[in-house]
Design a protein around this nucleic acid. Structure first.
Lengths: 205, 205
DNA sequence: GGATCGATGTATCGGGACGATACATTAAGG
DNA sequence: CCTTAATGTATCGTCCCGATACATCGATCC
């Protein structure tokens, strides 16, 4: 999940880890931030996979005998996406299966990078997410009406608020889907509609 | 976090792991369930800490030489809370600091066990949670008005939905707090109000 | 009668994410 | 000048999750 987000950001411009974290927090919706304990290992994985490169020669060499607790000078490291990384990102961005929307966190990241996503993929993801959340809602409704009597008021309140949230998400998704459909109709009728720059990522050769 | 929830459930009656998981899913609000990969290690930790006991003599013995992949017959294991476990639960249930409300997940669990929580602790937790979420809301509002122009519509939509959710949570919490205050007034006016069984856990000796 | 399917039930493994922590450099401001 | 805040890199232990394996039991189907 981080993999996708990092590649997406580096796709726009090279960055430090620190800057990456800030952008990430913004793009993820402002509330949920990412910790360094996730970020740096993720970058290491991406480096190992060949998807990103660094300025610094290579921090592989583990400095053999350095008894004092590793007080080696730490320079800034700029991460840059490689050609393989871009390829990987386009591969990920074109996926529209359940893995794209079953997990809410990943769905959020996908949404944040929708401007790099083809229109048909966007629609499939939004509709998949809606189905998923609708199923959750039905399950919740059933459970609530089944156990309404036996729960104390706090648990009940928790369930009601949860159901309300899920319900709101469904409506929100329906709105987004509507807008997608309206836009694509407009584009079909009009040749090129206003205010919607076409997506990158052509339909995969 | 699981520690609290498990102790809370076992406080009511002994249970199998399987049953525990089902009850947990119900109590946690219906959406978020707990996986066995969390549950059994958690039970193991609680066992090691002396907070729960099992029927089965002791699954410690690691069966020395048994080349076939561990096909030992697996019996049901009933977990029972110990005296130390009950003590630990009451200790946890009386905490009202930031750790009780800063994390939404833990707050949910705390709320689910509010019927075991003293009235003053309930109020402190609810108000703490409200402050936390209000701060989140303000941060989100600021970030949104700061970056409104530069964000694409999808990221914008994500932020708006997030802000809306947070806003709803604040209102929900305000309602819960109101109800707490009303009830305690009623109880003060009336001696013993209806429909609100008094909390266990006296104010910590 | 037997096959099979879904619920019940226990348990591990690898990996991902987090919070806490340590350490270093530069900017700002009192 | 000194101290605070922001910038910046990185690891550690811990928790939790999804996937997976194994096992038993009742019901339903053919």
């Amino acid at each position: 999940m981080l993999e996708f987000a990092i590649l997406g950001l580096l796709h726009q411009s090279p960055m430090h880890g620190y800057e990456l974290r800030k952008q990430l927090a913004q793009v993820l919706g402002g509330l949920r931030s990412i910790s360094y304990g996730s970020l740096y290992p993720a970058l290491k994985r991406l480096y190992a996979a060949g998807y990103v490169t660094t300025d610094e020669p290579d921090p592989r060499a583990p400095l053999p005998a350095d008894a004092p607790p590793l007080t080696g000078r730490r320079g800034k490291v700029v991460y840059t996406i490689t050609a393989e990384g871009k390829e990987r990102f386009h591969e990920l961005v074109s996926q529209s299966g359940p893995e794209a929307y079953d997990d809410g966190g990943l769905f959020g990241v996908r949404l944040a990078f929708f401007r790099h996503t083809a229109a048909d993929v966007r629609l499939r993801i939004l509709e998949g997410r809606r189905r998923t959340v609708e199923r959750q809602r039905e399950g919740l409704r059933a459970s609530l009406s089944r156990t309404r009597e036996r729960l104390d008021r706090y648990t009940l309140e928790l369930q009601r608020h949860g159901l309300d949230s899920v319900d709101r998400e469904v409506r929100w998704l329906a709105e987004l889907i509507d807008r997608e459909l309206t836009d694509s109709e407009g584009r079909r009728d009009d040749g090129a509609a206003q205010g919607d720059p076409p997506a990158q990522a052509p339909p995969e050769p």
